[in-house]
């Protein structure tokens, strides 16, 4: 049976380094299987998050050969096995131990977003055509790979001023809900700092759910912010009609 070497980061906030493990490769094996093998046979204390092992829960996010991935979906046979496979924790979030990071930042950002607020007197009928767009956003499994890869958070660490792709997707899902009655453009502009996004699309590239984060969520939201804050003609129209 073929053998692979996994070069896994072991350590915590006080430091650490990479440790090599040899793992037998089975057909269809994914990186998470290899990590489980290591836990079961070599390092029972190797910390890694996982739940469903079927790309539905978004727990096992990591960086495989430097690329942000769900490890339950990253096939060993798609990787060059002649060299060690580097497995790192998500870079953007503070490390807890080994491959586990502190993602609590995301839960804090989430709390800034006003919840779904239905219009009054609705009969709750909705057309599929009206919700198709929103259903794409609701596919998000909160793996936070987009938050991890976004350079605004990753390189520039704008963790307080910037919401990040996951939360633009969430806002898009709420703002474009056909029955929602709240506008979130002020939140987007100020608290979630959508202007920091320079639409370089890495969030879309890493999304395991194939959500078109940039094209379908962020850019349409940027356009909505333009409507409310940057478009001079829209501003004049608002002044003349007295509408918000």
């Amino acid at each position: 049976m073929a053998e692979a070497t996994l070069r896994v980061y072991r350590g915590d906030k006080d430091g650490g380094g990479h440790v090599d493990y040899k793992v037998p490769v089975a057909p269809g094996m994914v990186v998470l299987d290899a990590l489980h093998y290591i836990q079961g046979h070599q390092a029972p204390d190797l910390a890694v998050r996982w739940n469903c092992k079927a790309a539905k829960c978004g727990s096992c996010s990591g960086e495989v050969n430097g690329r942000p991935k769900l490890m339950c979906k990253t096939r060993m046979d798609d990787l060059p096995l002649d060299q060690p496979i580097t497995v790192n924790p998500l870079k953007t979030f503070p490390i807890i131990k080994d491959l586990v990071t502190d993602v609590s930042l995301n839960y804090r950002i989430n709390k800034k977003i006003p919840a779904f607020t239905p219009r009054e007197n609705t009969d709750w009928r909705m057309q599929q055509d009206d919700i198709d767009r929103v259903q794409e956003f609701r596919k998000c499994i909160e793996c936070f790979l987009c938050q991890n890869v976004c350079h605004v958070l990753r390189d520039h660490q704008k963790t307080e001023e910037f919401g990040g792709p996951r939360f633009f997707v969430r806002v898009a899902g709420l703002d474009m809900h056909p029955l929602d009655s709240v506008s979130r453009t002020e939140l987007l502009k100020d608290e979630l700092g959508i202007g920091f996004c320079n639409i370089t699309k890495c969030c879309t590239e890493v999304c395991p759910e194939d959500i078109h984060i940039t094209d379908n969520a962020i850019i349409p939201l940027k356009e909505r912010v333009v409507d409310d804050y940057y478009d001079p003609i829209m501003w004049v129209i608002r002044k003349l009609t007295g509408k918000k």
């Binding site: 942000p68 990753r154 520039h156 996004c197 890495c202």
Partner: peptide, 16 residues
Amino acid sequence: SCAVTGVGAGKYSGER
């Protein structure tokens, strides 16, 4: 490129 550190750390203001 994605997951490659860019330039200008600390000075970035995006499109603001």
